[in-house]
C-alpha cells in the first residue's frame, strides 16, 4: 500500500464523461504520488483534466477505473455515504468562488463542517475561534459573506477548510477570483498552513504566479502529465 512518506497514491486512474452520444476521455491512466506535507500545484490549460483530478483526490467524483489511496484509505472502494463521511473527516476544500453559505455568518460558515463531528458546542466554538484567529478575521466573525471582501471571504473559506484539521487541503483556483493583493494574501496563508501546520496541499491553478508558492508544480495536458 502507501509508503510512509506518501499521503496520496494514485494508480492507473481513468476518467471520461459522456456528452450526448460522445464519450470524452478526461484522464488517461494517470499514476502518481503526493508526499505527506507536500504543497503541489497542478497546472494546465482549460479542459486538461486538472479539476477532475482534484475532485477525484478529494472524493467528490469517482474514477472509471484505477485506485486512489489517501492516508491509507482506498477511497475508490467507499460507498457514497462512506465517502461523505470520509470527506468530512479528512479533506479541507478551498474553491475559486469561496462557496460560503450566504445566510450564515463567517463564524457559522466555519462551524458548518464541525457539526458533522462529535464535538460539543463549547469545543466547536474553541475551534472556530482558533481558525478565525489563524486567518486574522476574529473581528469579522459575525459578518455575513455579502459584508466581506473577496479576499476576506476566501480567508473564511480557508478557515472552514482547516477547522476540521484535515489530512489534505485541496484548492481549486483559490486566487482565480481575487485581485493581486488579495491573491498574495491567500497564497501566503496557504504557505503558512503548509509550513506551520504541515498540511498537505493540492492546488489547481492557471496562474504561474500562484503556482510559484507550491513546492512542486506538475503540468497536465490532455489528461496526462507532461514529463
Amino acid at each position: 500500500m502507501e509508503s510512509a512518506s506518501n499521503i496520496v497514491e494514485i494508480r492507473n486512474i481513468c476518467k471520461s464523461y459522456r456528452r450526448g452520444e460522445h464519450t470524452i476521455a478526461v484522464l488517461n491512466d494517470i499514476s502518481f504520488d503526493i508526499a505527506r506535507g507536500e504543497f503541489l500545484a497542478i497546472m494546465g490549460p482549460s479542459g486538461s483534466g486538472k479539476s477532475t483530478l482534484l475532485n477525484l483526490i478529494a472524493g467528490i467524483d469517482r474514477a472509471d477505473s484505477g485506485s486512489i489511496v489517501v492516508n491509507d484509505e482506498d477511497i475508490t472502494a467507499l460507498s457514497e455515504s462512506e465517502l461523505a463521511g470520509w470527506r468530512a473527516d479528512n479533506v479541507g476544500f478551498i474553491f475559486q468562488f469561496y462557496n460560503l453559505i450566504p445566510v450564515l455568518t463567517a463564524a457559522e460558515n466555519i462551524d458548518l463542517p464541525l457539526h458533522l463531528t462529535g464535538l460539543t458546542r463549547a469545543q466547536r466554538r474553541e475551534h472556530v475561534e482558533a481558525a478565525l484567529e489563524m486567518v486574522n478575521l476574529t473581528a469579522r466573525s459575525e459578518h455575513y459573506p455579502s459584508q466581506l471582501s473577496g479576499g476576506e471571504q476566501q480567508r473564511v473559506a480557508i478557515a472552514r477548510a482547516i477547522v476540521i484539521d484535515p489530512v489534505i487541503l485541496v484548492a481549486d483556483e483559490p486566487t482565480g477570483d481575487l485581485d493581486r493583493a488579495s491573491a498574495e494574501d491567500i497564497l501566503g496563508l496557504m504557505e503558512r498552513m503548509n509550513r506551520e501546520l504541515n498540511k498537505t496541499i493540492v492546488m489547481v491553478t492557471h496562474d504561474p504566479h500562484a503556482a510559484r508558492s507550491a513546492h512542486l508544480v506538475r503540468h497536465l495536458e490532455k489528461g496526462e502529465f507532461s514529463p
Binding site: A58, I60, E80, S81, A84, G85, R87, A88, D89, F93, F95, N99, I101, P102, L112, P113, L116, R160
Partner: peptide, 14 residues
C-alpha cells in the same frame, strides 16, 4: 444547487 453541492462536499448527506 451550488450551495447544496458545497454542503455535500463538506460531508452532509443526501
Amino acid at each position: 444547487t451550488g450551495e447544496y453541492a458545497v454542503l455535500k462536499t463538506l460531508g452532509y448527506s443526501g
